[in-house]
């Protein structure tokens, strides 16, 4: 029986063997940033020979590759089992995996549910709460059947007049609007702050509901390229999974028939995302692209707000912000500047 050991990738010889093992199983071409983002890596050894590996990063299982031993599936099950136990001990009771389509069945055998798939990859989850629980436990979703429901997914880093304009338009054109705020905490404003600013910014719109996007909407699990600089192919593939997950799980459960997005003149990643949404969502969900709000001839974006904050020129963007966001930034300017000084990326999303 093979045994599990930790792999310390800081040791060059260990890393070299690991990379070679992954390459022999068709896994290669990932960036150093992606390798550096993992929390722990395990190796399955038969004597001194590496026969399997896997890693965890946040609540995601990654870099899983195994040799087939004497008993079919045994090595795979042992690796996945160990990773699941470690995730659970780290407090992640809900876990996800991004893998190649040929492994879908293997993960199915160990209790994973498929969330979305494309020709090149599949996204699965296990543990609790799963997507069904997440969606059905959102307060207020019970009365959404037979109503005209629209959805907007936003990072809102921070919430601007541009976001407000998009929500207002959707609120005027639909009976209910569900706003999902990206939950992943990799932006200048924390997810709690972004959530709070969105709630404050739309509080007067009675038919708007604000929810955290959880692991399912533009999360670090479904769409890492939103947060890490990546090539176009990677972005296209990840956004396709994200779009299909929305179309096949979120929209039917919540009776959403329209999704609103802002037109994207500036962010390359988001522009690709919009194109992919337009291709994947219809006819089940209608995609409505709204031209950006302009203020005195310039397009309102959160990127400019963060830039102005970093350059100590906040006054130049006051017109871009609702009172609630403006007030928050005034009150927390020192803290935000500290985060920027510490190296939080303000140019991405």
């Amino acid at each position: 029986m093979a045994d599990i050991r930790d792999l310390h990738l800081r040791v060059p010889s260990v890393k070299k063997e690991w990379i070679a093992f992954l390459a022999s199983h068709g896994l290669s071409g990932f960036s150093d940033a992606e390798v550096a983002s993992v929390d722990s890596v395990i190796g399955l050894f038969d004597g001194d020979r590496l026969v399997g590996t896997g890693a965890i990063a946040g609540n995601v299982l990654k870099f899983i590759a195994v040799d087939e031993g004497d008993v079919p599936g045994a090595n795979f099950n042992q690796v996945v089992s160990e990773l699941q136990t470690r995730l659970m001990m780290a407090g992640h009771s809900h876990m996800m995996v991004f893998t190649k389509p040929q492994y879908e069945t293997s993960f199915g055998h160990v209790g994973f549910t498929t969330l979305a798939k494309t020709a090149v990859g599949v996204l699965l989850e296990a543990g609790a709460p799963g997507i069904k629980q997440y969606l059905t436990q959102l307060p207020g979703v019970q009365d959404q059947a037979h109503k005209q429901v629209a959805a907007i997914v936003m990072n809102a880093n921070p919430f601007t007049q541009g976001h407000r304009y998009l929500v207002e338009k959707a609120a005027a054109e639909n009976e209910i609007v569900d706003v999902f705020v990206v939950s992943t905490d990799r932006s200048l404003f924390t997810s709690a702050e972004r959530m709070q600013l969105v709630q404050a910014g739309v509080a007067d719109l009675k038919n708007v509901r604000v929810y955290p996007g959880g692991d399912y909407m533009v999360s670090y699990a479904t769409f890492p390229a939103y947060f890490l600089k990546s090539g176009d192919d990677v972005i296209r593939y990840q956004t396709t999974l994200d779009a299909r997950l929305f179309r096949d799980w979120v929209a039917p459960t919540l009776h959403i028939s329209r999704r609103y997005v802002g037109e994207e003149p500036k962010s390359h990643t988001t522009a690709i995302y919009n194109t992919v949404l337009a291709k994947e969502l219809p006819p089940a969900v209608q995609l409505i692209v709204v031209p950006r709000l302009t203020q005195a001839g310039t397009v309102v974006t959160a990127t400019q707000v963060r830039q102005a904050l970093a350059n100590h020129q906040l006054a130049t963007v006051q017109d871009f912000l609702p009172v609630s966001t403006w007030q928050f930034i005034q009150d927390h300017q020192d803290e935000l500047l500290k985060r920027i000084a510490k190296g939080v990326n303000i140019r991405g999303n």
Binding site: Q78, Q84, T85, M88, S93
Partner: peptide
């Protein structure tokens, strides 16, 4: 939420 056991035979 808790977990016990493995996926081994």
């Amino acid at each position: 939420t808790a977990l016990a056991g493995t996926l081994e035979s």
